[in-house]
Design a protein around this nucleic acid. Structure first.
Lengths: 90, 90
DNA sequence: ACATTATTTCGGTCATTGCCTAAATAACAA
DNA sequence: TTGTTATTTAGGCAATGACCGAAATAATGT
């Protein structure tokens, strides 16, 4: 869960998640939304993947990123619990 | 809102929030729950204060930290929105 | 004024992060 | 196999973050 919170700490990574919320996209499509270099973005992808917030699927030469909704939901529940608003204590 | 997500990225800071969820505590009381040095902890307090997640009140020589529930709720809503689960789009 | 207690600020080190360009890998088509 | 496109890995650098001990500040009591 720590990795999830760390992944959420960077604005670019949050924006990636927001884009993937609408539909799965290739690395290139995602890159088109940012001005930063592709290798930098690739590093952000790795962080999101390590946190299990996204998963990948190769389609030929392109790699499709998709949002892992269940982990997003778990993270939200963890946060709600932290805030003491709902969810379990643990 | 970026400052909030950054503040949540460190486990010690999340633990501080969890402790403050039960009741307001002085810096010293909070420090008793951790093994790290007080100056380090004081730095974490500053991060939380900058994110407006906690507020302070001086009582004599001690400083009381209290959780800022409204900001916690806003952050939760922002996260829910990011996940596309509820809350506003923006 | 001086000492005591609580907390923060200062000055420094070490590890990590974010960014880049250049090079490597992967899949596919000619 | 050579070339093309898509993406990642490697290498390096500047900025930031986390940590500590020592010193400074703040409030209070003697």
């Amino acid at each position: 869960m720590n990795e999830v919170f760390e992944a959420l700490a960077h604005p670019v990574r949050r924006e990636i998640l927001k884009l993937l919320r609408k539909r799965a996209m290739s690395a290139g499509e995602l890159a088109a939304h940012f001005t930063i270099a592709k290798p930098t973005l690739s590093g952000h992808f790795t962080v999101l993947k390590t946190a299990d917030l996204v998963s990948t699927e190769r389609q030929g030469t392109t790699i499709i990123y998709r949002l892992n909704m269940s982990v997003m939901e778990e993270a939200l529940a963890a946060f709600a619990s932290l805030a003491g608003l709902k969810g379990k204590e643990k």
